[in-house]
């Protein structure tokens, strides 16, 4: 998915190519996603992030088809700015606001996998610690205490910021996200959003290959949905 201002789409295409998928870029003015098994909203600054991050992008023509796809149970993944768009669209709970220290953060962070039930974590084990680059100013996840309680009860929190040993603490929270939350999913698990960039952790030369398991979860989850009785 490419909005005006999206800038991580080629990284995502490269990473999905590497794991053997056949990605195609779709411009936001399209209205049809027929023939696709999954959709990824990559990072960037869709529509300049004017008003709020993702606020204008959620009304792009393609978002009707994205919402329809989400309703079928197919994987709909948002990375960084794509996560913000999915929150604005109401496809994921909560929202993302400016980082606690008002600084743009661009560095690898550690993430602890909390559940393997989503379209982004089917290929990861609960408790596994991943090292993935974070690259954002508005990465601070917020939601009301009731929403957080409901999400925890429904196992909708995918990954939390942690230290290298997997311990969740304030010190390991780069941006102030409530509960160190770095990624969430909807109740069905097929719509998933993640602030760090798994597509930037797919080759040794990039410093980490921990993103591969997350991205491989997308086709694995789609197969699970397809074979569900």
């Amino acid at each position: 998915m490419v909005f005006p201002g999206t800038n991580c789409e080629h990284d995502v295409v490269h990473a999905l190519d590497l794991i053997g998928l056949q990605p195609e870029l779709v411009f936001h003015k399209e209205t049809d996603l027929t023939g696709f098994d999954a959709v990824v909203l990559p990072g960037g600054f869709a529509h300049g992030d004017y008003l709020r991050t993702g606020a204008i992008a959620r009304f792009s023509p393609i978002m009707g088809a994205v919402t329809a796809m989400a309703a079928t149970g197919a994987p709909v993944i948002g990375i960084c700015n794509g996560f913000q768009v999915l929150c604005e669209a109401g496809l994921l709970p909560g929202a993302l606001v400016a980082n606690r220290d008002l600084a743009f953060i661009c560095r690898p962070v550690h993430l602890r996998v909390e559940t393997s039930r989503s379209a982004l974590t089917t290929g990861a084990a609960s408790g596994e610690v991943l090292r993935i680059p974070l690259n954002s100013y508005e990465g601070n996840y917020v939601a009301s205490p009731e929403t957080i309680r409901e999400m925890e009860a429904a196992d909708q929190i995918l990954v939390r910021y942690c230290d290298a040993s997997g311990t969740i603490s304030d010190a390991a929270n780069p941006n102030g996200s409530i509960g160190n939350i770095a990624g969430v999913c909807n109740a069905a698990g097929n719509v998933a959003g993640l602030m760090p960039h798994p597509e930037r952790a797919v080759e040794t030369v990039l410093g980490s290959t921990d993103g591969i398991g997350l991205l491989r979860s997308i086709p694995a989850f789609a197969d699970l949905v397809a074979t569900r009785p």
């Binding site: 606690r100 008002l102 009301s144 205490p145």
Partner: peptide, 13 residues
């Protein structure tokens, strides 16, 4: 404005 009780880093700083 941000709802009360939710993180407001600009206000806090």
């Amino acid at each position: 404005r941000r709802k009360e009780g939710l993180s407001d880093p600009e206000g806090m700083t």
